[in-house]
Design a protein around this nucleic acid. Structure first.
Lengths: 131, 131
DNA sequence: AATTGACTTAGAGCTAACTCGAAGTTATAG
DNA sequence: CTATAACTTCGAGTTAGCTCTAAGTCAATT
C-alpha cells in the first residue's frame, strides 16, 4: 500500500507541513515520489516514522535523529555508534522519568494542601510558596 | 539570610540572566531589593523558586506559572482555581510519564536488537527501521 | 581617587521546532 | 475543457525560552 502525505499526517497526528519540514531536515530521505513528484509513503516508511516520533517525543533533537538516520543508511560500520546512541538516549529517558516522578511528589503535596484548604477555606497561603 | 542573584543562580543551576528573565516575565514579583536596587532573595523566595522550577521542569509554560503566582498573591478567592490547575497539571505529568514509559519500550527493543547484532555483526538493517 | 567586580535595565539576538502563505503543478470529476 | 482538490517548493514568520551585549550604578579594595 502507498499513502499520501495527508494520510500519513492524519495517522501520526502531525500536519503535512510538519512532515515536509521533517523531510527538509533530512529525516525522511527514504520516502519515494511518484511521476508527479508527490511523496508516496509505504508501510516500511511507517516504521521509520514511528521511530522518529518515539525519538522526538522523548526529547531527541531533530539534528540527532537526522544523524541516526544517516548512520542507518551508511550500513554496518555505524552499528556500534547507533547502539551507543540508544544507550545514551535510554539514560536520558530514565532521567526524565525520575525527574517527573520527583516533581510529581511536589505537585501531589500541593494538591493535598489545596484539597484540605478548599474544604475548610480558612487562613490560606497568600504569600507563601511552602506548605 | 539574604542572597544575591548569582548565589541563587548557583543554587538552582540557572544563570543570573535566566532569573532576571523570569522576573521580567512576572514570575518573581515578591523578590525584594536593597537601596542599590539589587535583588535580595530570602529563604521564603527559595520555596517559590523550587516550585517554579518544578512547574517549569514538568512542562508548564512560563505564562501559566505567572498566572498561578498572580492567583497566589490575590488571596483566597483563587484557591479553587489553583487547586484545579494542580489537578490538570497532575494529569499532564502522569500522561508524560506514561508516554515516556511507552517510548522506553521501543528504545529497549532497539537496544536488544543492537546488543545482539553488535556481537554478531552480520546482515544488519541497512534500510529498515523495523525489527 | 581610581580600579574592580557584581549588580542593574533595555533591548537585540539566537535556536528549535514548527507554521504559514504564495505560486505553481497535476489528476480527476463534471 | 475547465474547475477543483491535493499535492509541490521556497521562503518568510512565529513562539518559547532563553542568551547576550551595552551602558550604567554602586560598594569595597588599593
Amino acid at each position: 500500500m502507498r499513502y499520501t502525505i495527508s494520510q500519513v499526517a492524519e495517522k501520526f497526528d502531525l500536519t503535512a507541513h510538519t512532515i515536509r519540514y521533517y523531510d527538509k531536515e533530512g529525516l525522511l530521505p527514504f520516502v519515494e515520489r511518484n511521476k508527479a513528484g508527490n511523496r508516496q509513503f509505504s508501510d516500511k516508511d511507517f516504521d521509520w516514522l514511528k521511530l522518529i516520533c518515539c525519538l522526538k517525543n522523548t526529547g531527541m533533537p531533530i539534528k540527532q535523529i537526522k544523524l541516526y538516520i544517516e548512520w542507518c543508511l551508511q550500513g554496518d560500520e555505524t552499528l556500534e555508534m547507533r547502539r551507543q546512541m540508544y544507550l545514551d538516549h535510554r539514560t536520558e529517558v530514565i532521567k526524565q522519568m525520575n525527574d517527573l516522578q520527583e516533581n510529581l511528589k511536589t505537585i501531589d503535596y500541593k494538591l493535598e494542601f489545596y484539597d484540605t484548604i478548599c474544604n475548610i477555606p480558612v487562613n490560606a497561603d497568600k504569600l507563601s510558596a511552602g506548605k
